[in-house]
Simulated assay, not measured.
Amino acid sequence: MLTDWINKSNVRLINRAKDWHSAVALSVQPLIDQNAVESRYLQAIFTMHEQIGPYYVLGEGIAMPHARPEEGVIKTALSLVIVSEGVEFGSEDNDPVYIIFALAAVDSHSHIEMIVSLSKLFCDEEAVNTLKLAQDEQEILAILSQF
């Protein structure tokens, strides 16, 4: 269940982000605060984005910034930021992004259950739209508890 990973300490609801850099930084900060990743993990995401583009924009309005385990992952973790006004990531088909799940995984298999739950959420258009329009953290957690 996604609420095994997302709780009040690692979910944020904001109106707007200055740019994709600040949106990604805001999404990764709870992972740093929880000692799930080293601060260099954020820089690794920025570097990859600059090299190959917004590889972590998964679909319309949804991003999942992440980097390789060796880039400073300490433990598997997930955080969430909802940007109600959306933010441009440079993903022509999927901008603006409203839902940003920052993911940290210690290896290629320990987070599979988490990815399955996220996939179910992403395939539920109604749930994604409700999440995008959420007004507070309790509403966000209620939606996530279904997956």
Rank of each mutant, 00 (worst) to 15 (best):
I45P: 00
S108Y: 04
I14L: 08
M64H: 06
I32K: 08
G59Q: 13
E71R: 11
A23I: 14
N15Q: 13
S79Q: 07
P65M: 10
E88D: 13
L103S: 02
L31R: 11
A77M: 09
I99N: 08
R16Y: 03
I52L: 02
V11R: 01
K75L: 04
V57D: 04
P30Q: 05
I62D: 05
L42N: 03
I62P: 06
G86M: 12
E71C: 15
N35S: 10
I82R: 09
H21N: 09
I62N: 09
F122Y: 14
Y98V: 08
N7L: 05
D107M: 06
K120L: 14
Q29N: 10
M114G: 00
D19F: 09
R68P: 01
D95N: 09
E88M: 14
L103Q: 02
A127F: 09
S119Y: 03
E88N: 12
S39E: 14
M64R: 04
M64T: 03
M48Y: 00
E126A: 15
R12M: 11
H111R: 07
P30K: 07
F101I: 10
E88I: 15
G53D: 01
N10K: 08
N10E: 04
A104G: 13
E85H: 11
V11D: 00
V81A: 09
P96M: 08
T47R: 10
E70I: 05
S117P: 00
I100F: 11
I74M: 13
G90Q: 05
A17P: 07
E38H: 11
H21F: 13
S22M: 04
A104W: 07
I45S: 05
A105M: 14
V97T: 08
V83C: 10
S22P: 00
V73R: 01
D19Y: 08
V128I: 15
A67M: 02
I14E: 02
V81G: 04
R68C: 02
Y55V: 01
A44P: 00
L78V: 06
I52Q: 01
P30D: 05
M48I: 04
V106H: 02
R16L: 06
L121Y: 09
Y55W: 03
P30H: 08
N94G: 00
A77L: 07
A44K: 06
D4H: 12
I62F: 12
